[in-house]
Amino acid sequence: MNAGPSATMTNPANTSSPNEINLRKPDFQSAAPAPNGAPDEVAIRADKFDGWYGEFHALKGISLEIPRCRVTAFIGPSGCGKSTFLRWMNRMNDSIVGARASGTLTLDGEDLLSRTRDVVELRRNVGMVFQKPNPFPKSIYDNVAFGPRLHRSFRSSDLDELVENSLRAAALWDEVKDRLKSSALGLSGGQQQRLCIARAIAVGPEVLLMDEPCSALDPRSTASIEQLIRELEAQYTIVIVTHNMQQAARVSDRTAFFFEGSLIECGDTDEIFTNPRNKRTEDYVSGRFG
């Protein structure tokens, strides 16, 4: 029972839900053009996508579309395959023994699963933020500059500017501008996570994948990250995996519900939370299981 590719975008700017009144994102029409200026509204498209870990069939026939410059949330109980699916989008599963996939998964119409695909270039284009903040044991500056230095050689003034803008984009600049050279490990958990977002932004990605980015944070840090996510969507296609349904309702435009490796339902967030088509979705979002 898949929503399938037929679940296309409706304009989320016109919809509203009671618990996100204060966090409306910028108007759809006024949003900045996508970085690559692609005319297609769909950034990532999966069609009959299957994923395995060895013998374990982790993802079964997933078909969905992820709109450009919008926030899409993956929800579902633990082990439902949502994180696994996320990790296929930047091929982080490559390093896992026995992980394989079939079907179609494309970014901007280009095959993500191809053997000849340059994984390094893909990951530059698809950034990832992890469950636990994982700043490198380096200075704040070096954390942000790490990615850019890998891919290009910069003049130092350009690099300074890039680091500053990335930290500004992660709403961290004002808090750390006086101690860029001190260790990133001295930051608070929420600051560390925003640093990881800045680090991902600095390589100039088009897509940001977030794997439960707030699950290790306190409520106040969570609120600041959620606000940041809403602010970043003008520029980035964001996919966020979350266990927290309120969070999905607060930050996302689109929601996909996974259950036991299958995509049960995918649609506008308001739709999923107020008027789900599937009984299991309704049970899950209303907290009856999971």
Binding site: M92, S95, L122, R123, F130, P137
Partner: peptide, 17 residues
């Protein structure tokens, strides 16, 4: 920690980098 390696790989670093 494994998370440092995945963090670096996710930024597009190669195994050696």
């Amino acid at each position: 920690p494994r998370s440092l390696r995945t963090g670096s790989l996710a930024l597009g670093a190669t195994q050696w980098q």
